[in-house]
Amino acid sequence: MQPQPTTAPAPPAATATPPVIQLTGIEKVYQTSTIETVALSNVNLSINRGEFVSVMGPSGCGKSTLLSLMGLLDEPSGGTIAIDGRPVGSYSDKELAGLRNHKIGFVFQSYHLINDLSVRDNVELPLLYRPGIGGSERRRRALAALDKVGLTARTGHFPAQLSGGQRQRVAIARALVGEPEIILADEPTGNLDSVMGEEIMDLLLGLNRAQGTTLVMVTHDEQQALKTGRLVRFFDGRQVA
């Protein structure tokens, strides 16, 4: 299978449209009382509109950290992050929240579903923070997203009543529901069997192809990585390929 035709052609960085996400000289240091961990060191990375990028590397090399910075969940210790060419340092809290809500869909490595909410309410959550979407519309979209990940039979369940793989699919549905321009997925198929993993992978590829969704995916699966447009490798906090 050829990976190239499945992705939309990425415009070269030099064109007028700036990269959707641009990391320049990114450092991330985790400070605890006893030790200091350098999670990322001098990372320069541009993600262009419509790209599907996979990130690989050994455990602890900083992949999740990278994704959380791209998803505006955390701030770098150094360097700048620009979204659509504008450095995020200049955004207010409200604007950042708006970006996280409208522009980005995030699939956490450990799902992070809200235990007190049913599957459907969990998936609706991003829409709750979008003004102007009524309850029935939220429900409709949530059910549609759950349908895409094959979980229509479990909408009234609570996360504690689901298997690991089912939770992962709920987390994916939650990232899809707002139809974001960018999806950042941290090992989205890590807990799925190969058939289900394949289906989710096809779903992501389909989004990339049909809707031009920009995707950054952390994976340990070489086969999956080969299907994406670009592969970035990390080792010990540095980009090595």
């Binding site: 998803g71 969940l73 809290d93 409200k94 929240a97 708006g98 970006l99 996280r100 809500n101 409208h102 995030f106 956490f108 992070h112 579903l113 809200i114 959550l125 991003p126 709750l128 923070y129 979008r130 939650r174 707002g178």
Partner: peptide, 8 residues
């Protein structure tokens, strides 16, 4: 999580 999903 709510903040991460875009709650101001």
């Amino acid at each position: 999580v709510r903040r991460a999903l875009g709650a101001p």
